[in-house]
Simulated scan of single mutants.
Amino acid sequence: MPARSKAQQKAAGAALSAKRGETAVGDLEEPAKSMYDSMSERELEDMAGTSRKDKPDHVDD
């Protein structure tokens, strides 16, 4: 699942870093913390690997 915005891609990267033990989970902010809890490492890799080119900064649902 590709990221829909730059903010979502950045949060996925932070959550992935915590999944891999490179960052403390307590240092995560929302929504990265909820991504960490609800997504697998593979899902986070897919989302974090999305290109930021032509993505909006934020997406309102």
Score class of each variant (00 low, 15 high):
M35T: 00
A32R: 03
L44I: 13
H58T: 14
V59S: 08
R20C: 03
M47R: 13
K19V: 00
M39K: 14
A11F: 05
K10Q: 09
A7D: 11
P2A: 03
K6W: 09
G13V: 04
D60W: 12
K10C: 04
T23D: 05
E22V: 08
G21P: 07
E43D: 14
V59A: 12
S40K: 10
A18W: 02
D37A: 13
E29Y: 05
Q9W: 02
S38R: 15
S40F: 04
E43M: 13
H58W: 09
D61G: 12
D61A: 09
R20W: 04
L16P: 05
G21R: 04
S40Q: 06
K10G: 08
S17N: 01
K10W: 11
Y36Q: 02
K19G: 02
K19D: 07
K6P: 01
S40N: 07
K10M: 12
D57I: 10
Y36T: 06
R42D: 09
E45A: 08
A3T: 00
D46H: 02
K6Q: 11
Y36S: 04
L44S: 07
Y36V: 01
L16F: 02
D46P: 03
K6E: 13
G13W: 00
D27Y: 03
T23G: 03
R20E: 13
P2Q: 10
T50N: 09
S5R: 04
D46G: 08
D60V: 11
S5C: 15
A24K: 15
T50W: 02
A12I: 06
A24D: 15
S17A: 14
G13K: 09
G49A: 05
P56T: 04
